[in-house]
Design a binder for these strands. Structure first.
Lengths: 83, 83
DNA sequence: CTAACTATAATTAGTGT
DNA sequence: CACACTAATTATAGTTA
């Protein structure tokens, strides 16, 4: 995305992939924070990666739980067949 | 972010805010998709906004449920006091 | 391995239709 | 309203230390 266009598939080289992951992980959460702040949005992001033993929960555990519960309630009330 | 630097607070004008939300919502999910594809990452994003009656669940309901369950199991096993 | 730098690609605020 | 355009900002691949 900068010195070269991104090729839209898994980055084969492990070192490159790890570095890219770190940068993009930061970038994604920054974008998420901006969307929440600039517009009136409630959101959460949960990320699992091979580079960390624990999931990254954004913005925090409390919001993630609250948001997921609302999602589950919505899906149930809408009688969606997803459970 | 383009013709003007972004001011990091709620966009007061409702029309501007709605337009910005639409653009940034698309942009965020694109970045999320890229992170998943380029690096080996499992993730989900749930977004609530005043502009839609239903939450946006990315990449889909099944992944969101799976990811959230893993998060809950992790938190429980780690004996975190978050429930 | 990490972190800083920088050239270039990608995103997007403002604008026009 | 939605979409296309584009100037300007922001993100980041590759590089250097």
């Amino acid at each position: 995305m900068s010195r070269k266009k991104v090729i839209f598939s898994l980055i084969e080289n492990e070192t490159d992939r790890k570095v890219s992951h770190k940068k993009r992980h930061i970038g994604l959460l920054k974008k998420a924070q901006e969307l929440m702040t600039l517009c009136e949005v409630e959101m959460d992001v949960i990320i699992y990666s091979p580079y960390s033993n624990e999931p990254k929960v954004f913005p925090n555990h409390g919001v993630a739980i609250s948001t997921f519960r609302k999602f589950k309630e919505f899906a149930t009330s809408e009688n969606k067949k997803i459970w």
